[in-house]
């Protein structure tokens, strides 16, 4: 039974995976608490940063992107950045549209 090929050399151990799982859980709990604590203007940036960290952790380690061919991370980051830019552009276009009357 030949072993699956490519990236098994730089595999993470079970312990490391569990540690990452724990870290993600902690971040989620911190996010939850942050949303209850009255942080005012600070809340939005904190939440965005925390979810961005979770996002990167899952993509880099669970989806193995850090150990894969550079092309895959280029493809995914280009698509993700494009989706983010379109999201920001659309939201901005609608928020700063003076002509919307049923606001």
């Amino acid at each position: 039974m030949e072993n699956t090929h490519s990236s098994d050399a730089n595999h993470l151990s079970i312990k490391q995976y569990l540690k990452i799982g724990a870290l993600l859980t902690i971040i989620t709990i911190v996010e939850l608490i942050a949303s209850y604590v009255a942080l005012g203007a600070l809340l939005v940036p904190i939440l965005l940063i925390l979810s961005a960290i979770k996002f990167v952790i899952v993509v880099a380690y669970f989806m193995h992107l850090r150990f894969e061919h550079r092309l895959l991370s280029q493809i995914f980051t280009f698509a993700f950045v494009l989706a983010l830019c379109i999201l920001l552009a659309l939201v901005a276009l609608f928020i700063y549209d003076p002509s919307i009357s049923n606001r």
């Binding site: 493809i75 995914f76 698509a79 494009l82 989706a83 983010l84 379109i86 999201l87």
Partner: peptide, 19 residues
């Protein structure tokens, strides 16, 4: 991976509509 890139835009548009 390329399908997931395409799905990124799919959910990007959905989330844009929500926002």
């Amino acid at each position: 991976w390329i399908f997931l890139a395409s799905d990124c835009l799919f959910f990007g548009a959905l989330i844009s509509t929500y926002m």
